[in-house]
Amino acid sequence: MKAALEIKGLHKRFPGVWALRGIDITLDAGRVMGLVGPNGSGKTTLLSILMGHKKPTKGEVRIFGMKPGKRVREITSYVPEIDHLYGWMTVKEMADFTAGFYRSWNPSKFRELLEFMDLNPSFKIGNLSRGMRARLKLSLALAADPKLLLLDEPLSGIDPLSRDKILEAFIKWFQFGEQTVIFSTHIVREAEKLFDYVVFLGDGEIILQGEPDELRNRYGRSIEDIMKEVYR
């Protein structure tokens, strides 16, 4: 099977600072990868390079064998941390707009997700709370039925109920084993049971990577506690 992700020696330099300094990751298709680390460790930069929004300074990146770009974006749902939804649109208009980008868009899955998330198609996005917008972002991403899902901090800055809904919806509608996901988060406790691979990023470098159960076994600690330990 073709690897979902092959990253070799990836460096990214912004004026005056190296955001990524030598990243190597190989990820099989069908995996749920946790990308963990504090703010500023390079998580968002890595995701934007995968999406082709930023260019590597050095190194190789392949996504299902392809270089980052349009073909990758057609099979990828990217949920950025920043609010990228249009406030003047209704939920339905936003869905129609998103559907236009994906041949794989699944309208019945979207309806199920809306119902589960307590969202109404006629709601105006500008009037939604942060938590409700986060629910909508994940619903749009899952309904696009992508091969690759990139979630940037989907749990941060939202109310506990929305957090639970997002995790539950992910478990229910994400097709484990078929779809691949990179789940970037600094909130690890709630999500760590979902991961079957985890990469710890710190200051643009990989500090540790492996299968969560192996790491728990090796350190006798939870992934969250290992994270606290390695970033001390």
Binding site: V32, I171, F176, K193, L194, F195, D196, P212, D213
Partner: peptide, 8 residues
Amino acid sequence: KIGVNPNT
């Protein structure tokens, strides 16, 4: 049911 990765 238990919110754990299917591979696990």
